[in-house]
């Protein structure tokens, strides 16, 4: 009997993406794993040191303290995303959904900062919060005198709050639009039925709208977890590659950057150790994404 010939047309369509993904993502990833076992500055001879880079990362008091402090900041930021930023996004999405007055204007104003690049947003923040030449201190100095000026980004108690504030200003629009789009898809009959049953605005939000947002919540939370664990650009612009004098805005990506690429004038580069950090980061993000996925499954209606 003649074997039925399999139709492999789909392979042709998969091939381009697969090849490019392999070349530009998988191969570099494999090389990062490979380099993590070497003592290598990025040039010259490579010295195989086995798990030496990983041992240093977890046991060297100075390095591990820096790494775990930075990792703590990543989780701190993630907590802010879950407890502050996401609820604000849902709130504003609901405001738009129930079509409050000037809702179109509000939507435009909230989404506008999202189209500005992070470097520019960081620059705006510096113009505002710079202790020497910033607008806020200029105003405070003129109104209350020099003694009342604040250190802002240099104040260990303020810097993280300013950072989260800037993120809220910049990123609220993106999540809000995802939630808003999801709300638009809620069948009108369900909403109408809840109104007929005497549901108030507050109850309708909690009992009808919020439970219908599971798909966008899952998307948003997964993206937020990845974004939080790969944070780099804004803190770099705000306080530099060291995460500021206090290290309050130091994130694991910045630790990786410092070790892998060093500084301009005197810094030493260590691609091997940087690769080890990137491998650990990969594992952390991978596990977190899996856990998030598993937890979010419980939200399924």
């Amino acid at each position: 009997m003649k074997k039925k010939k399999k139709n492999r047309t789909h392979l042709f369509f998969i091939a381009p993406g697969f090849i490019l993904y392999t070349v530009f993502m998988m191969i570099p990833l494999a090389f990062a794993f490979y380099y993590s076992f070497f003592d290598w500055s990025g040039i010259g001879p490579m010295k195989f040191i086995g798990l030496g880079n990983f041992t240093k990362l977890f046991t060297s008091p100075r390095v591990s303290a820096t790494f775990f402090s930075a990792l703590g900041n990543n989780f701190k930021y993630l907590a802010c995303v879950m407890l502050i930023i996401t609820p604000i996004q849902i709130f504003f999405a609901y405001i738009l959904y129930i079509k409050v007055r000037f809702h179109k204007y509000i939507r435009f104003m909230l989404f506008l900062p999202y189209v500005i690049s992070t470097s520019i947003v960081g620059f705006f923040a510096i113009v505002l919060f710079d202790p020497n030449v910033g607008a806020l201190n200029e105003i405070i100095g003129n109104l209350f005198g020099k003694a009342h000026k604040l250190a802002w980004l240099g104040d260990p108690n303020l810097v993280f709050k300013i950072f989260v504030g800037v993120i809220i200003w910049q990123c609220i629009g993106s999540g809000m639009m995802i939630f808003y789009a999801n709300m638009q898809e809620i069948p009108e009959e369900i909403v109408e039925a809840s109104v007929i049953d005497g549901c108030g605005e507050w109850k309708r939000f909690w009992r009808v709208v919020l439970p219908m947002l599971t798909s966008s919540l899952k998307t948003n939370i997964t993206l937020s977890v990845i974004y939080a664990m790969t944070m780099f650009d804004l803190p770099y612009v705000l306080v530099g590659p060291q995460g500021g004098a206090t290290g309050k805005l130091d994130f694991i990506n910045m630790v990786f950057y410092r070790f892998a690429f060093g500084g301009t004038y005197f810094g030493e580069t260590s691609i091997g150790f940087g690769s080890a950090i990137s491998v650990v980061m990969f594992v952390i993000i991978f596990i977190l994404t899996l856990v998030t996925k598993k937890l979010l499954k419980k939200l399924d209606y």
Partner: peptide
């Protein structure tokens, strides 16, 4: 009071 919040050029 701002020396912890500016960079060298600042």
């Amino acid at each position: 009071n701002g020396y912890l919040g500016v960079d060298g050029s600042g």
